[in-house]
Write a protein that binds this DNA or RNA. Sequence first.
DNA 1: GTGAAAGCGCTAACAT
DNA 2: ATGTTAGCGCTTTCAC
Lengths: 354, 354
Amino acid sequence: MTATIRDVAQEARVSIATVSRYLNRTGKLRNETAARVQCAIDTLGFRPNAVGRSLSTSNTKSLGVVIPSLSNPVFADAVSGINAEARAGGYTLMLTATDYSPQEELRTVGALLEYRVDGLVLTVADPDHSPVLDMLEKSGVPYVLIYNQPTPKMRPTVTVDNVEAGKEAAHTLINLGHKRLGMISGQFATSDRAHARRSGFFQGARAGSVSEPAVLEVDLVELKVDVTLAKLYADRDSAPTALFCSNDLLAISVIGALERLGLNVPTDVSVIGFDGIAVGTHLHPTLATVIQPSYEMGQLAIRQLLDHLNGGDPPNTVVLPHILRLGESTGPAGKPNPAALQDPAQSMQRKSAL
Amino acid sequence: MTATIRDVAQEARVSIATVSRYLNRTGKLRNETAARVQCAIDTLGFRPNAVGRSLSTSNTKSLGVVIPSLSNPVFADAVSGINAEARAGGYTLMLTATDYSPQEELRTVGALLEYRVDGLVLTVADPDHSPVLDMLEKSGVPYVLIYNQPTPKMRPTVTVDNVEAGKEAAHTLINLGHKRLGMISGQFATSDRAHARRSGFFQGARAGSVSEPAVLEVDLVELKVDVTLAKLYADRDSAPTALFCSNDLLAISVIGALERLGLNVPTDVSVIGFDGIAVGTHLHPTLATVIQPSYEMGQLAIRQLLDHLNGGDPPNTVVLPHILRLGESTGPAGKPNPAALQDPAQSMQRKSAL
DNA sequence: GTGAAAGCGCTAACAT
DNA sequence: ATGTTAGCGCTTTCAC
């Protein structure tokens, strides 16, 4: 069915080496020869077989991409950047979403290594204790992490400073007058960034002299936020007046759940998310969040990989700046949240009116 | 650096054929032999080279995926389904987003064919006049479209009935009391589904005896909705009281733009979208929309492809049911929109109060 | 149950 | 400027 380079050579009455040279623009051909080859290619509908080429050159011009999920726009945005940059460099992407499963990470990276991808960009559950990364490191295939922020080991990553951002989130909320903070997070076991954000959030709380925030974990796939929040807000007088959510998608669910509980955002509870996904600005209330430059992170990761593949330095850790964007979900900027500033008596009264 | 099957054979003191048999569980080995081979594999850290295998077997166990964009969750959701199903079948995905560029479609499908993917699932700009699909068809590589709804030619696709859905959108709005309909759409040239939805919408308008809807095209990448809508609503007395948007992302932008123009949704203008992306239900007003089963569409497309690759029937066109979901953005269900029912005098009065 | 050897489609010396 | 040929890592007859 499909023609090979041999067929083309025969059709053009040249050797396969000549066809190969024509295909790769390596070495010069007589015009007439080139024309004959091109003609043969057209009449046969020939398309060079990248598998054969890869076997011969031992590079595949393909890159592996491994992310937890595509349902979360934050990853989809990164992949957009990855896609654009890889395409520009003439590389093809092999993509897998792991659904936050370390087991699946292992499987898929194994597969990608068998396909002999020239490099990988990935976000793993836990970069500090990661069989996947150990395996990758042993394989010698270049890789860059995105979003991950490994602590001890030196592993190249493109990320923001999650700890610092968590701190800023706490400060922001405290400056708004909040005394009782809370954090709703995806599972820490499968998200080092959630872990880091919490760590920063706690530091910020301590620095702001408010008591240690309540922390609730929810399954990001199930996303059963209602029951979780119902429990937290069973006693509204002791419940947090401000919630930091480990990502925007979660924050959106949380806002919905709060309102279903009869709690208004931001009047009763302030909410701040993380990621800066586009829809956040279209919500009502608009979503306060920590913006990560996802598209650029993806781009940069690929650029580092390609630089390295072209003989440049190996990928390096880059910490990109994040932006804390205020929104209606935290209440008016600078103005203290009334709910958090009331004296106890007023507070009781107010809460019972809900 | 990387061990080959030769190295393993040598280390295990067997022939490479035996190693191959062990790897593929084809033919039986003596327990002791198998153990020796496994041991050699472990000590060498051997990982079979899929490129070599592919060259030999002439199949790659990989599938191509080509979609317009990952920034739109509707496609990301489909890819999620594709990912899950491909993974389950032991296939790896090669993914490209084309940014709605037919040229890029051609480039990327060309590349995927060179990589010898075993099949493709794709969404193209215009399936009826598509060099890409012609090329694909000629190549003999099996493929399935998703979202696309080719009209004349028989091309396998997994889709909803966009025309019918467009009709229903019109009926719904008309039943709410609207007389002046409008449609805001992505570019028809790069979206056959937008085209089909408009077609249905017009049919519905005609059937409902309202005048032909105003139609505005916007660039989905730029997404400059504000200026476009400002013009449309310069004369509010003649402007549409209900807008059908060709997708949810667009609808969300439109709602924002309307409100920036001082128009309330749904009081002044009803809005209905298309796709059923998850965030729609979290908006205020909640987004009325036509839900497509994106995840399932992706799953089904892959399932068809894999069935065929395993000797089953070639992919077939499947039209999946859509669901029209009402939301606050169209106003209360069943209750006529007040704005659209006023007599002219009241209307003038009301509009001037905006 | 295991081995030897012929490719799969291509590139890259090495010749000429 | 073009041809010859030896692999790249694997699968798969065909022998034994």
